[in-house]
Nucleic acid binder design. Structure first.
Lengths: 213, 213
DNA sequence: CACTCGAATTGTGTATACACTGTTGGGGTC
DNA sequence: GACCCCAACAGTGTATACACAATTCGAGTG
């Protein structure tokens, strides 16, 4: 693994997990020493982060971690609704029914993972991730998939702002199952509607349980 | 101006204008010598181009100029319809009517620029660019605006594939005027519909007059 | 005591040297 | 004659040194 990849992954994790707060200046020498690499690969990593929008160049005074405010959340979900709604509709048109039927059945059993004696939330998150991946593959549109990938980076940051309690996760699982069902049924409009519903509930939850860092 | 900015702008121009054909390998030493700079800023420029999708890293064998095929055109317009349709609708909701009324009037006079004795096509293109800019500003959603900007880079490449004859440009100006009118009227659904119509006609024209490079 | 000018320091931008990996060409062997 | 192995090379990945710009701290003066 290249040193620049390592630095990129480490910094990205630190930003997404809010270990590096918005506004933090990432000085090149400081970070390169912290990560045990030279400035050259670090600069490439910072360049990639800036391209993704996780950092911005502060005019000669290094790069700073981008802030995410409440207005940003509204904007993010506005774009998300547009992209994921379209993606769900396309998946319903082009996707393989069996794949999404299987995902639906698994999602309907998800409450066991969330509310069980030993909450296996990681399994639940990976299940939702598989739904995203399945949709990405079904739409067969690399540009749309790319746009959604770049959007999800910011969404993960936002998600960390909210308390993902068991109650909300259980409801979200049902909403995801509804999306999978609509895609499996080959119903584009229903799939888009189910996605809209899910995103609006998700946004409401984030705003309701928002905890400032 | 930094050397990396210069290299980025130069390479980007070369790719968009098809002076660097898809599949061309951009060797670091070769390009750095051609542009008269060192490898370090060139690498940053290549990094930015790759992030934009104009180039891809070919696994240790340098970066190559991304190909744009006919399927890519369909995918691009699919995403474009989604994003610009939403943007037009949002602009109709949030935009300033006077701004778009002015643009509409100018667009209705655009045939003079296109068909005049001394075709001032540059003025026409800048007028369309002003419409894009006005929509970007009206939506007040930086994430959506960013997604559209990254998309337009690829669209300019595609546009170079088509012959933009005076007939098509005249029709396109009327379609743009219809979009501006709908936004000025504050009618989101009409604005989205007008955008959809324009994009479909534009796609048909590109595919009909497509000339392989 | 406050304000201004200057120097030092910190930090980015660039160049270059070195290391390592992947590839390609040639020679040898089966 | 074909295939395999080794060596040379081309090219990327990384480190470091140097140049320049900006900011900040301190000292001197009004």
């Amino acid at each position: 693994m290249r040193a620049s990849d390592k630095a990129y992954a480490a910094l990205r994790e630190d930003i997404i997990e809010w270990r590096l707060a918005p506004g933090t200046v990432l000085a090149e020498v400081e970070q390169s020493e912290r990560l045990g690499i030279s400035r050259t690969p670090l600069r490439e990593a910072l360049s990639r982060l800036t391209a993704e929008g996780l950092t911005t160049t502060a005019g000669g005074r290094g790069v700073v971690v981008t802030d995410i405010s409440l207005e940003d959340i509204d904007e993010l979900f506005e774009l998300r609704e547009t992209l994921e709604g379209k993606a769900a509709a396309l998946a319903a048109e082009r996707g393989d029914a069996a794949t999404f039927e299987l995902l639906q059945r698994e999602l309907l059993r998800a409450p066991e993972l969330i509310n069980g004696a030993d909450p296996a939330r990681h399994d639940y998150y990976s299940l939702v991730g598989r739904l995203d991946t399945a949709i990405d593959a079904a739409i067969s549109n690399s540009y749309l998939a790319q746009a959604m990938r770049s959007l999800r980076v910011h969404l993960v940051r936002v998600r960390r702002l909210a308390a993902d309690d068991a109650k909300r996760l259980t409801a979200a699982a049902a909403e995801h199952a509804a999306i999978a069902e609509a895609i499996a049924a080959g119903n584009p409009r229903l799939a888009e509607a189910a996605t809209t519903v899910h995103l609006h509930r998700s946004l409401s939850h984030v705003k309701a349980t928002h905890v400032p860092h």
